[in-house]
Design a binder for these strands. Structure first.
Lengths: 150, 150, 150, 150
DNA sequence: TTTT
DNA sequence: TTTT
């Protein structure tokens, strides 16, 4: 019935993606994403608040994540809230919430791209190569009718 | 690159959809949507502000709009900003902005569905019949992997 | 940093709001919201999927919810994901996710359902009485109550 | 009523902000933001599509933009669509759409691009000085300046 | 566990 | 006019 369930996040990965290749060409990637907000408390002191999100990506999205994302990567995410519910050993109802990612975009590429002198593999500073960015936006495939004569 | 261009609207149609059936099974629908916000001005008086949006829908979305929407319908819209630019007769650069709708959802259905005694065809109070709602949400087709064994 | 944590929902309340009036004029309301999506599975059968969300509203928003919302109400919600973490009796880390509502808007249903005596077919005739809608769109001005002892 | 009018953008500035300081401590900044999407056309060729947006920021947001943003800056923007309508010299109705920015966040790019002297391989080496980011996330507290003579 |  |  007329439902909308949409999540929009911008944050950094707390760890490299965890990727599982399943039977039948299925791939699932799990990411930990931190979104941090800063504000002043009532005493005017700056306070930081970090929320950690469990992201789940499937198939094409998972493969792109595996190839291009790593600990520290900054991404824009669009997805939906999705929960698993089950009973634990004591028979208690349990619930776990994750974000099912529908599309994501790598952020933080240097505007000038060229020489950043970065030779260290552990830094996040890689620009999002163009063929990475393209599929990352892959959910807008229906644009082909944009070139109608109107 | 890494671009995001997203518009989310909730409002009411100012007129019935204008639908054109084109060659090659193409269909385009144009809608006028009003979003109204209310706030208090500096004197504490309530002020209403209405913004009118030009929406454009193609193909499947256009057909659903044609079939189920009418003047007054309340909808949730997700889309993107899209502008046309051209030169007018005087050689001035002109620009027109519209919202390319990617998905929409009909609102205002009664949760309990049951008879509301409404027999007037021109009122907006129609519930969104279930087969209308389904295609209106049609952009989430990739959910079929939801039923994996995890 | 540079974080964004945004949730947008449209759904119906599964129960009347639970409201607690606390010391110091603080008010908190908890809502259960269902967002339902429908899609066709691989066999072409229509499947419905309902996700339940725990919403938390404070102060002005909570008061409006208490006054105008009830089981079945359809609302548009904007908020953010917010989790509590703790250790349970067995020393296991536990986490509970809720949606902290920053603003909400009542959608095209009569707040109380009952006959509104509307006999004018052409009116946009809508519900959510005007003084309800106005504060319902008010933005939450501060996050300072985030540090309440809950 | 019950309106929602929300725009979310991620893109790069096409030019430095244009800032005007007005009487009464009012400040307005105008930005040109490009959002680029890439997709494959029906022949499998990669196509890029850039949309240009006119952003308008007031007061606190405008001051932050003036201080920290420049041509090429990548930002996340949340705002609403706002149009001006008028009659031109020929008496034709004209309309111009812009995005009224309610909040923005600087994304992972060095504000000034050039040498940041970062020699530490493990840092995300990033810019957007902390006091810039903080206020940049501040919400615009009032719409009352909407009725300025512009 | 990220980031600034 | 940005970015990749």
């Amino acid at each position: 019935m007329a439902g909308v369930n949409k999540v929009i996040l911008v944050g950094n990965l707390g760890a490299d993606p965890e990727v599982k290749h399943l039977e039948g060409d299925k791939v699932v990637a799990n990411l930990r994403l931190a979104t941090t907000e800063a504000y002043k408390d009532r005493n005017g002191n700056r306070v930081e608040n970090t929320e950690w999100h469990d992201l789940e990506l499937w198939d094409a999205q998972a493969r792109i994540a595996e190839q291009y994302l790593k600990k520290g990567s900054q991404i824009f995410v669009e997805g939906k809230i999705k929960s698993d519910t089950w009973q634990d050993d004591q028979g208690n109802n349990r619930k776990r919430v994750k974000i099912r990612v529908l599309s994501f975009t790598m952020l933080g590429s240097r505007p000038d791209g060229q020489n950043n002198g970065d030779t260290n593999p552990n830094t996040m500073s890689r620009p999002t190569t163009s063929n990475a960015t393209m599929p990352a936006n892959a959910n807008d495939m229906d644009d082909s009718d944009d070139d109608l004569p109107f």
